[in-house]
């Protein structure tokens, strides 16, 4: 990959469901090392964009390029191995697995192969040690053996980020990582993500907490009704007339009444 080509690039991507157009001609680039926010009112299509990038959906039209490769038709299962990892808006950890087992599941694309499937993941396993180290870096070392279903919300939220990280991704996509976290937890999440970014991982987050967006992300993309309405520096986003209109609804107040 040349220094100039972006890590992720969407070109005229559209997606509809049963005649309802959800994403219309969205294009954007994310440079390697960027910290990008994807924002917009509820229903703007942010999570759909995540699902298109991670392969849950196939675009009706357009191209998605990642690390110099067209990935629109790559099966979702293989994308994490290319370096695309994500978290989910509603926590989707495996409730009956322990914390460390969830993280080891996140390593699946790294482990690969038939032989690794037959290898036990007990105390001395390299994978378990790596998973525990990763948890420790997130200050979660007291939890590895606990079954996820029994843990509080904020902790599970963090574990989901760590699970995505366990695949050693080039691009980390987080869907509302700060939702439901208190200000202290959000601050520690911010510092943690900053650390990941400094280590070279590109970050794309969907987030409603503008404090986190401003302090973490240098760039932002704003979606409204499935179209891109802003693509630029985060610090200017709140002065953009289209963005103000989307959120405050100067002319489209009725359409945005419940946004």
């Amino acid at each position: 990959m040349s220094a100039h080509s972006p890590l992720l690039s969407l070109k005229d991507v559209s997606k509809g469901f049963f005649g309802l157009q959800v994403i219309t001609d969205v294009s954007f680039d994310i440079a390697a090392g960027a910290r990008m926010a994807l924002i917009g009112p509820n229903g703007a299509g942010k999570t759909t964009i995540f699902n298109l990038i991670s392969g849950v959906y196939t675009p009706d039209k357009g191209q998605i390029n990642f690390a110099g490769q067209e990935i629109s038709l790559v099966p979702s299962r293989k994308r994490i191995g290319l370096g695309l990892a994500r978290s989910f808006q509603n926590i989707r950890l495996m409730p009956h697995l322990s914390v460390v087992e969830n993280i080891m599941l996140g390593q699946q694309s790294q482990a690969g192969g038939l032989l690794s499937m037959a290898t036990p993941l007990m105390g001395r396993s390299r994978w378990r040690r790596e998973a525990e180290d990763l948890l420790a870096r997130m200050n979660l070392e007291t939890y590895p053996g606990e079954v996820v279903a029994t843990l509080p919300y904020g902790i599970r939220k963090k574990i989901e980020v760590v699970r995505a990280l366990a695949s050693n991704p080039k691009l980390l996509m987080l869907d509302e990582p700060a939702a439901g976290l208190n200000p202290n937890e959000t601050a520690s999440l911010r510092d943690f993500l900053m650390g990941i970014s400094e280590a070279g991982t590109t970050i794309l987050i969907v987030e409603h907490d503008m404090g986190l967006v401003r302090s973490l992300c240098d760039q932002a993309i704003v979606l409204n009704f499935g179209r891109k309405i802003y693509d630029g520096l985060t610090r200017d986003v709140q002065e953009d007339p289209l963005v103000l209109e989307a959120y405050l609804g100067s002319r489209h107040a009725q359409e945005n009444a419940h946004a």
Binding site: R92, M94, E101, S116
Partner: peptide, 20 residues
């Protein structure tokens, strides 16, 4: 790891797929 993936599929097939 096979056992781990079995139990993961039991809990959530779609996320297991996204995990590779």
């Amino acid at each position: 790891r096979f056992g781990l993936t079995i139990r993961a599929i039991h809990d959530d097939e779609d996320v297991s797929d996204l995990m590779g």
